[in-house]
Amino acid sequence: MSERAVREIIALIAAELEIPESRLSAASSSDTTPEWDSVGHLNICLAVQDRYGISLDMEAIGELTSITALAGLIDKT
């Protein structure tokens, strides 16, 4: 997982959830961030799909609930 990917994902999530980036770190996930609820999570996934031109499947949406998982995904794209 690259530092660049973590930085990009933190910026994207902060924008989607409308929270300051300082609230997020590489260790953040939906469990540690109250605003990252089910609606927030779908917004994040829509944004990731749009920004990186990828098509997520339902299983992936269920698993991509942490910064680590999302940054790992965009490293692969």
Binding site: S38, V39, L42, C45, L46, A47, Q49, D50, S55, L56, D57, M58, I61, G62
Partner: peptide
């Protein structure tokens, strides 16, 4: 269809 079944979102970001 992914977002439809994952959370009753019918549209893509582009559509929104």
């Amino acid at each position: 269809s992914t977002f439809w079944y994952a959370g009753r979102i019918r549209y893509t970001k582009q559509m929104f």
